[in-house]
Simulated scan of single mutants.
Amino acid sequence: MPKTSSTPGLSQWLLVAALIIVADQLTKVLVIGAFQLGDTRPVTGFFNLVRAHNYGAAFSFLHTASGWQRWFFIGLGLVAACFIIWMLRRHGQQRMFAWALTLILGGALGNVIDRAVHGYVVDFIQVHAGGWYFPAFNVADSAISVGAVLLILDELRRVRKG
């Protein structure tokens, strides 16, 4: 499909990903400046701001590994970013698909930066209810999660059309 003036190109998708990275890194800098590791500040009855360090992946997977996971997840994030950019270049006109990929790209690179700079990912959003606490997360994780949902919705929409 040819690109029209209303169809975002690769540079526009990369700009959105960069904005996600900036928002992610800015919020993490604010948390690092205001919280010590383990600090918790209640915001509502179901939401806290915390400072947690995740040396692993989602839900602290491989959190207690000996350190090799830092480099593994940095490499995996960079390979995924290259693949996503390639996909955006080829399919940037597919809006929902491109939004999904862009959110995942921004989130992945936001967490890669943390791993490269700190050796861990800074998490600070904690949701809880009835004594149950969801693992702490951050802006990058949120972008990745929304992007994953959009990928699923895009595929469901594509299957229904076909």
Rank of each mutant, 00 (worst) to 15 (best):
A23N: 08
K161F: 00
G162L: 05
I21Q: 10
I125P: 04
S11V: 13
E155T: 01
A100D: 04
V112M: 04
I125M: 12
F47W: 12
R41A: 15
T44K: 15
W71S: 12
N48R: 12
L105V: 03
L109T: 02
V43E: 05
L150E: 01
V112G: 08
G147D: 01
C82I: 15
W13S: 14
P2G: 13
G92W: 02
G92K: 02
C82V: 15
V22Y: 12
V43Y: 07
Y120S: 07
I152Q: 03
V31A: 15
F35Y: 08
G119W: 05
Q93F: 14
F72N: 10
H63L: 08
A23W: 11
I32N: 12
F61Y: 09
T44A: 12
T4F: 13
P42T: 09
A140V: 06
I84P: 10
N138D: 01
W86H: 07
C82M: 13
L14K: 11
G9R: 11
L62G: 04
A17V: 13
T27S: 15
H128G: 03
F35G: 03
G9K: 05
I125E: 01
Y120L: 01
G75W: 02
F72V: 15
A80F: 04
M1K: 11
R157N: 04
V139K: 00
P8W: 15
G9D: 09
N111E: 05
G106D: 10
W13F: 14
T27I: 09
L156S: 00
D24F: 12
G110C: 02
P8C: 14
L37K: 13
Q36A: 11
V16G: 08
D141C: 07
L150K: 02
A116D: 01
A65R: 08
N48P: 10
G56N: 11
C82Y: 12
L103S: 07
Q69L: 03
R95W: 10
W132V: 05
G75T: 11
F73C: 09
W86L: 02
F83N: 02
I113W: 03
D114V: 07
G75C: 09
H118G: 07
I20S: 10
D154E: 11
F35P: 02
T7L: 06
Q94P: 00
L26Q: 11
Q12L: 12
S142P: 04
W13C: 14
F47V: 13
F47K: 12
D141I: 06
G38M: 11
